[in-house]
């Protein structure tokens, strides 16, 4: 466990160095680096018996792409106070995302790794197709909605798994990252009464987007719980040699779901 924690810290440091841009950091919040993604991809790459340098060659650009895409999710449509500073923040958010995308390409080009450039380009294409579907509320079925969420969350790691011929790890990443997103969406829904997922579900199930009755909310919670349960079952059914740290994270994730599910039942 110590060994993987050390590697994760080193990778995080490398990624932070790429993201370091004094002017950008002064004007826009730095995106957080999702350690779960690093852990998940490292665990998969370890299973493929890759060298430390080869692992870097996947994890660093993958995280740069992830951060680039996450940054562009922050671009606003309207400016609350119509102030110059807000406009500047939006402009720099666009450019920061573009810069991080460029850095992923530059990193892999310097290593002459054209195959991985292609793998990530395919994933970015797919992720954005699904993001637009989701954003435009252009999804007609609940199953498609959950699939879109899974693709958005997991496509980068999924495609690495395919590329290095570890399809079980791709499947694991698909359900692990979907589970993580669903737990987050559920928490948001419980705290704020809404979330992207629940808005979309309401749109599909009740063809509406406005305030829902208590029973309707409960029904949607039930659907979400069912999918969370499904992810859990799939994950526990995949036979993989997971390292201790990933197993711990998975247990934590499943545990946090149990707390949420209990709360849902209590709140009726």
């Amino acid at each position: 466990m110590k060994h993987i924690l050390k590697k994760m810290a080193m990778l995080k440091e490398q990624i932070e160095r790429f993201l370091h841009h004094p002017y950008l950091l002064h004007h826009i919040p730095m995106q957080s680096i999702d350690e779960d993604r690093i852990l998940l991809s490292l665990s998969m790459l370890e299973d493929a018996h890759l060298s430390s340098e080869e692992m870097d060659g996947y994890v660093v650009p993958m995280m740069l792409v992830q951060i680039a895409l996450d940054t562009h999710d922050e671009v606003t449509n309207s400016l609350p106070h119509q102030e110059e500073d807000e406009l500047k923040t939006r402009q720099l958010t666009v450019l920061a995302g573009d810069l991080y995308s460029g850095l992923y390409y530059d990193y892999l080009a310097k290593r002459s790794d054209l195959a991985t450039i292609h793998v990530f380009a395919e994933a970015i294409k797919e992720i954005n197709e699904h993001k637009i579907r989701l954003y435009q509320k252009d999804i007609g079925k609940i199953e498609s909605l959950f699939h879109s969420m899974a693709v958005i969350e997991s496509s980068l790691i999924y495609k690495i798994g395919e590329h290095i011929s570890l399809p079980l790890w791709s499947k694991f990443a698909y359900y692990y990252l979907l589970l993580k997103r669903l737990v987050r969406e559920k928490e948001l829904f419980m705290k704020q009464g809404t979330s992207v997922l629940f808005e979309q579900m309401a749109n599909i199930v009740f063809q509406k987007n406005k305030a829902m009755a208590k029973e309707q909310k409960h029904y949607l919670s039930h659907i979400c719980n069912r999918y969370i349960e499904h992810c859990k079952e799939e994950l526990l059914g995949i036979e993989l040699e997971c390292n201790e740290l990933l197993q711990m994270r998975l247990s934590e994730l499943i545990g946090s779901f149990s707390v949420i599910a209990k709360k849902t039942v209590e709140e009726g």
Binding site: A68, L69, H72, D73, V75, T76, N77, R90, V94, G97, D98, S101, Y105, L114, A115, I117, H118, F120, A121, E122, I124, K125, N128, E129, K131, I132, Y135, Q136
Partner: peptide, 24 residues
């Protein structure tokens, strides 16, 4: 809107790299 434009731009950029990798 802006968000739609961001996703479209990212999509097109990804396509450009896909095309470029055809040049070895």
């Amino acid at each position: 809107d802006n968000r739609f434009a961001m996703y479209t731009g990212d999509y097109i950029f990804a396509r450009s790299l896909e095309w470029m990798t055809r040049l070895n």
